[in-house]
Design a protein around this nucleic acid. Sequence first.
DNA 1: CGCATTTACTGTCATTTGGCAGGCACTGTG
DNA 2: CACAGTGCCTGCCAAATGACAGTAAATGCG
Lengths: 189, 189
Amino acid sequence: MSKQQLHQFLQSTGRIGAADAAAIAEPFVAKTLARGELLLRQGQVSNDYLFLDAGWLRAFVLSPAGQEVSTTFYQPGRMVLEPASFFTRAPAQENIQALTDCAGWCLTFQQFNELFHARPEFREFGRGLLVHGFANLKARMLEMVTLTAAERYAQLLRTSPALMQHVSVRHLASYLGITDTSLSRIRKG
Amino acid sequence: MSKQQLHQFLQSTGRIGAADAAAIAEPFVAKTLARGELLLRQGQVSNDYLFLDAGWLRAFVLSPAGQEVSTTFYQPGRMVLEPASFFTRAPAQENIQALTDCAGWCLTFQQFNELFHARPEFREFGRGLLVHGFANLKARMLEMVTLTAAERYAQLLRTSPALMQHVSVRHLASYLGITDTSLSRIRKG
DNA sequence: CGCATTTACTGTCATTTGGCAGGCACTGTG
DNA sequence: CACAGTGCCTGCCAAATGACAGTAAATGCG
């Protein structure tokens, strides 16, 4: 497997040229996960800044009541990251689990930070990643407030149809903020 | 009004010394807002990286149905920022409005970016700000999914009692993801 | 293969929440 | 003062969702 997808992703912001992309990608190390394996376990400090070539993952937390709540799904061609733990070096609240076999390229925090401070383009890239994640989360929050469960499901179907192939109804339901019972009814209806 | 609070806030991360804090604070310019005034209007590009000395603000968006939904409340001693527009230079979806008369210190995007690239400590500071905002939003999303409306209200009362003095029931309700009718009932309790 | 486990769906009923309309108190204005 | 406007509360009913239990199909495993 080559780093071609990673190169393209780095350049996709428009601010990183081919030569810089190659230099930035250089320290990334190959990483694979088997289906079901955890990339991050709650209580650990995240040390993976991962570009995902292939596969799907989900992040989840345990609610006070002890139930798994899926918080994020990660698709191929994107970064997999838990910023709160990775950047602050604090133990993670979240777990990140491979829904399928996965393969990608990974930086440690130290490697990330060296690039971050050494390369202005990568700085902007990293900042942009956080900003977009923030904006997406805000949009999701807005949907939680303004849409019904059925509308949220329809919206997700429309924007991420491929996701449905890899995620169980139960995971989807907790992501949408409803019970699997309700989601079953919504899908039926 | 002095920049003392800003100095302290910059140093509160532990990675910025007094001398660096003074140097970083230097380009910040005084900014005031009258109650009701908009710091940011949707459709505009945000150009304010604001530290709030005194006063309260809220951010809100218009839902597809045309209703105001409050998304964030800003308290004194913190930053006021709409990252999605400020960093990407894209028109904002959100409005930011002063709930009371406000005073603080402000950077433009250009000033911010110069500091960001020139000063490693400020880079880490800015990154930390985004990361914490992200983590807070995720925690709020988790509350939306796992708690009832009454529990979310109780939680907010516990964590931000001062907020209640400055925010109308209607704003609070949309922030909590319920109608003002329901919040009224919850408060009655 | 047989068996246990997990997953998805469904029915019934209780609870939560929204929609709507009305009432009361407060505020600013001529 | 009279008046309109606004914010907050409340009552009534309908819709959305949760809780629980049971079933059937799919899956994993010895």
